[in-house]
């Protein structure tokens, strides 16, 4: 079995979000970079668990980005995986990114492709579906549980107010979220091993960029909280009704 996990680099959750060059670029000053949590905690860890159960399984990681992504992909390799592939290209366009991953995946012949449910910076939830379409594979998004029995996967998928249990034969693309696996911390052996694991750099395929970011905006700051004394709950209800018109 061959598994491919898609990895993105994102700013740490607690990073200050600011923009520069006339609001056209994300201001990276002082930002700490992490593996996108959905890719790491859920997609990657679940793939590692599958490999632990099946010694013959091969686990590859893929990322699309410049050389600055390498520390992040090494960090991912410290958790697990046999090798990593970096497609040497930078893009905000989800189609472009998906097409690069699909190009590599076509040659790799993967049975399972995992992504996180979205990145915490662009919040698109787009790459997994587009990869699946380009590979003509089934796609199950927002998985909260993934079990494999031979070549049949049983996947719980989030729906409004609950879950749906799906069954599908491999190959398949899955986007993962909370529930699929539990977060792991890399150990020293993993960190040492990651240094010598192969990290292949491939040049991007010629693909059109279908979208581009023109500018960023930050929402206007909140006016500040209106505090109501604890002994006057009626006043809060009045404000919610008459001022906020929320009830």
């Amino acid at each position: 079995m061959k598994i491919l996990v898609c990895i993105s680099k994102t700013p740490d959750t607690t990073s200050k979000i600011a923009f520069k060059d006339n609001n056209s670029k994300f201001d990276e000053a002082g930002v700490q970079w992490i593996i996108n949590p959905y890719d790491e905690w859920y997609a990657l860890v679940r793939a590692i668990e599958l490999k632990e159960k099946d010694a013959s399984a091969v686990l590859h990681l893929i990322t699309v980005g410049g050389a600055d992504v390498e520390p992040i992909i090494r960090k991912a390799l410290a958790l697990g995986g046999d090798e990593a592939i970096r497609v040497n290209a930078q893009s905000d366009d989800r189609y472009f990114i998906a097409a690069q991953i699909a190009e590599v995946a076509k040659q790799g012949g993967y049975d399972l492709i995992f992504t996180g449910k979205e990145t915490i910076d662009f919040n698109s939830s787009s790459v997994g579906g587009a990869v699946a379409e380009l590979l003509d594979m089934p796609y199950i998004s927002l998985a909260t549980k993934f079990e494999l029995n031979g070549t049949t996967a049983t996947v719980n998928r989030e729906i409004e107010g609950g879950e749906e249990v799906n069954e599908v034969s491999l190959p398949v693309v899955i986007s993962c979220q909370k529930g699929v696996a539990e977060q792991r911390i890399p150990n020293m052996r993993g960190i040492m091993a990651a240094r010598t694991k192969p990290l292949k750099v491939v040049e991007p395929a010629a693909v059109d960029q279908l979208t581009s970011v023109v500018s960023y905006e930050t929402p206007p700051p909140k006016a500040g909280v209106k505090l109501v004394p604890a002994d006057n709950v009626a006043e809060l209800v009045r404000l919610l009704h008459e001022e906020a018109k929320a009830i």
Binding site: D93, R94, Y95, A98, A99, K117, E118, N123, S124, S125, S126, V127, G128, G129, A130, A132, E133, L134, Y139, I140, S141, L142, R157, E158, I159, E160, S175, D208, L210, T211
Partner: peptide, 24 residues
């Protein structure tokens, strides 16, 4: 809609039609 089913389908349709996608 960028709800659960929209997340499953919108980007796929975009890739199929070679249409640029903006979600959210």
């Amino acid at each position: 809609s960028h709800n659960q089913n929209g997340r499953a389908v919108a980007a796929r349709v975009g890739a199929r039609l070679k249409a640029g996608v903006v979600t959210g």
